[in-house]
């Protein structure tokens, strides 16, 4: 398949850690505006895939193109983020010594150089946007609380809020509902579906009811490469998928 028109194009990507192949000739494409769910057993390489896309890990082989032309393997983390790729980590990572508000302000789309931030004064638009995100993520009452004092689920929401504030073209969301109640899980699914209209989203999740609620194309990863791809129903019926993942 050609890289043209794709938002994200991975071809033959491999990564080894001390001889262990975490990604093995992985190929995957995402179209603009698409949402994709990625499932697979522990250690399948889901997080590692996000690491190679965002520049945290350099692949040993393979091509990774953004918008069909930008070679992500040549860029550093900040450069990749500024192309419009945002990430939520599996273990929620927020800036604990800062307030919820400041976390969002730091994430908010704005020029990122030291001189810009030194002279930054929050304007009405930025304030409105942060307030909107606080509402969406239900963190309004906690806006002045330190992020470090939030519960696990609230940190998840805050990190999703930070993704929204960044307004990236592609969102990589690693296990967003871990530690959430059923009701919260449902809200998160709705939120991600809302986002998906304007952005492309890759969601990694083990929670099958959540994946079902998203109702999008599913890619199954196992041992570092794609095992199956298609609707949730079709991959759930796939015998190989049942053997390595769902059946266990």
């Amino acid at each position: 398949m050609s890289a043209e028109d794709t938002l994200l194009y991975l071809d033959g990507v491999s990564v080894s850690f001390d001889g262990f192949r975490a990604l093995n000739n992985l190929s995957l494409t995402m179209m603009p505006g698409e949402m994709r769910a990625i499932i697979g057993p522990n250690g399948a390489g889901k997080t590692t895939m996000m690491d190679v896309i965002t520049g945290k890990t350099r692949p040993d082989h393979g091509t990774i193109l953004f918008e069909g032309e930008t070679d992500l393997t040549k860029l550093r983390e900040a450069g990749i983020a500024n192309l419009g790729i945002g990430r939520k980590f599996q273990r929620p990572t927020v800036f604990e010594p800062h307030t919820v508000w400041d976390n969002l302000e730091l994430a908010l789309k704005a020029p990122r150089r030291p001189l810009n931030t030194l002279t930054y004064a929050i304007g009405r638009d930025d304030r409105t946007r942060i307030e909107e995100i606080l509402d969406i993520t239900r963190l309004s009452p906690k806006r002045d609380r330190l992020a470090g004092s939030l519960s696990h689920g609230e940190k998840q929401w805050l990190e999703i809020g930070m993704l929204l504030a960044q307004d990236p073209k592609l969102l990589l969301v690693d296990e967003p509902v871990a530690g959430m109640t059923d009701a919260e899980t449902e809200q998160t699914a709705r939120l991600l579906c809302d986002i998906a209209g304007k952005h492309s989203v890759i969601v990694v999740e083990h929670d099958m009811s959540f994946v079902r609620a998203l109702g999008v194309k599913v890619t199954v990863l196992a041992e570092g490469s794609v095992l199956a791809e298609g609707s949730l129903d079709s991959v759930s019926a796939n015998q190989q998928v049942i053997d390595v993942y769902l059946g266990r």
Binding site: A81, T93, F95, E96, E105, R113, T117, Q166
Partner: peptide
């Protein structure tokens, strides 16, 4: 300033700041 907040964020979780698109080295 916001720059100061970026600095404190770098102090505690530098890699996270990079993924937000800040070139932490120049800070």
């Amino acid at each position: 300033s916001k720059l100061g907040k970026v600095l404190v964020a770098i102090r505690d979780t530098e890699s996270r700041v990079r993924f937000l698109g800040y070139d932490t080295e120049s800070y």
